[in-house]
């Protein structure tokens, strides 16, 4: 009870708030009443063991999973169960964990697809992305499917940034990447955030994720376990034991 009361004023001023969401696939519930919020200019990281419902949480925010209870509010507007096209138009973009590029399209075409609903300024935005990810400029005519995992992750992030989103959802951006590339991707996340984009991300490397985040949430079996500032969670004994390896 106490926590719910405490949350309200914060949630009201939040860019995104997930309120008591119960959701899942088919008959089965994966999330059993999850809450979370992201404020302007924040990086928020969600950590938790496999099967905690982290990816499901992202998909339900983005209208890809059946929400049975609760609601998603973005910029003061209820967007619960809106189709992805509508959510994108409202300024939220999403990078799925896997299959997040169009493999047979070139880098340039991938970025163009990210800006599909945008009518002008696509060139300028693309140049901005090439400045943020110089490797993509070099490989602009290469098919995304032939690039390395780390480079594909950059294509995926650049694609999602083409619409100038207010909020970017990243589902495990460093999954399967070598430590060098993982570090680079997280550096880019910080840089994107400095350019004024709020970020909600899932990170399987809890330490690295929390280190660059303002706040974090710990999810277990579809429920909120803990939430605090990134620093506080890093120092939390329980988090340390469960997710940070000792």
């Amino acid at each position: 009870m106490e926590q719910a009361v405490q949350l309200k004023p914060e949630a009201a001023s939040a860019l995104l708030s997930v309120e008591n969401v119960r959701a899942g696939y088919g008959e089965m519930d994966i999330l059993h009443g999850v809450h979370l919020h992201v404020r302007e200019n924040e990086i928020v990281c969600v950590i938790g063991p496999n099967g905690a419902g982290k990816s499901t949480l992202m998909k339900s925010i983005f209208g890809l999973v059946n929400i049975r209870e609760g609601r998603i509010v973005f910029r003061g507007e209820d967007i619960t169960a809106l189709p992805p096209v509508q959510i994108v138009r409202r300024g939220m973009c999403y990078v799925p964990q896997t299959a997040n590029v169009f493999p047979s399209l070139t880098v340039e075409e991938n970025l163009e697809m990210g800006a599909f609903i945008r009518d002008r300024g696509v060139r300028e935005k693309m140049e901005e992305m090439f400045e943020l990810f110089p490797i993509l400029k070099e490989r602009r005519r290469q098919k995304a499917g032939t690039m390395s995992g780390g480079q594909q992750q950059m294509v995926a992030m650049a694609r999602a940034l083409m619409l100038d989103p207010a909020l970017l959802l990243l589902d495990e951006p460093t999954a399967g990447l070598s430590p060098k590339f993982a570090e680079m991707v997280l550096e880019k996340v910080t840089e994107i955030n400095r350019r004024g984009v709020s970020i909600l991300m899932i990170e399987q490397n809890a330490r690295a994720g929390l280190e660059i985040s303002h706040r974090g949430y710990v999810l277990t079996t579809g429920r909120n376990r803990l939430d605090d500032t990134g620093r506080a969670l890093l120092e939390n004994e329980e988090v340390g034991r469960l997710f940070l390896g000792g």
């Binding site: 983005f62 890809l64 189709p83 992805p84 096209v85 994108v88 138009r89 973009c93 999403y94 799925p96 299959a99 997040n100 590029v101 169009f102 493999p103 047979s104 399209l105 697809m113 990210g114 599909f116 609903i117 694609r159 999602a160 619409l163």
Partner: peptide
């Protein structure tokens, strides 16, 4: 044709 789900989350109608 490449990836229907990604097309939808990119905002393609």
């Amino acid at each position: 044709a490449d990836n229907m789900d990604l097309a939808a989350v990119s905002g393609i109608d």
